[in-house]
Amino acid sequence: MLVPTVVLSGIGLLSGLGLALAARAFAVETDPRQDRITEALPGANCGGCGFAGCGDFAGAVVRGDAQPDGCPVCDQETRRLVAAIVGQTVQDRAPRVALILCQGGDDVAAKKYRYNGLASCASAALLGGGDKTCGAGCLGLGDCQRACAFGAVEMTPSGVARIIPARCTACGQCVAACPKDLIKLVPAEATIHVLCSNHDRGPAAKKACAVACLGCKKCEKSFAEDPRIKVADFLAYIDYEHAPDDPALAALCPTGSLVCSGAAAPAAERTS
């Protein structure tokens, strides 16, 4: 009994010693600032900064390859802290949130064929742009949902993606994941949005989707002097630098593509 105990303990001790020595001998020199930055960062490793993770980003900041405010996720406090560690200052930035510019679920948007294959938007989009008749419609297969490290994307029962603003950190991963380019980062305090990306003329757009922007310009006309909403190429868009906030504006829209409040209200509710 004694011999094996001693032998095993001995082996354990030796191995531990070896490891400790190896850690010393082969230690990689890191800038202490890198560790401090890594600690300050959210640690979600979402990749929103364009680097492999928070540690990688911290290294890049120390080397000067990344701006200290390059983390899109962390709050202003943290940004300032990170900048202070490398002896820089950062400008304040308005918080942003991702927005899906489509609300064409299966209940309102027409389909041009029956899709069979992978449940991935990027793969479906290779087949004639996807099954939605609207060329700029959400395919509802959830590439953005899978890309989101914060669980901030949900799929509505009618099969269109929706952002949960409270969870969104504006890291931008969903923006990159959407093959139809339907996701945009907008100022979090903006309340009026055009939730459509269809550039077709009115009749074609209407045929494709009941909640499409027809380019009718009703909204634009209410801002005749001050172009906060403009219609270009049959699609209204909002100048978020001077975002309008009048809830009455949304009532002008005949299809409900123009919505009020940060979270997109379900299209069905608005049109009824």
Binding site: G117, L118, L126
Partner: peptide
């Protein structure tokens, strides 16, 4: 399994 669809996407 939609293998060809995987590979078309994978190649791209």
């Amino acid at each position: 399994r939609p293998l060809v669809q995987h590979f078309k996407r994978g190649k791209a």
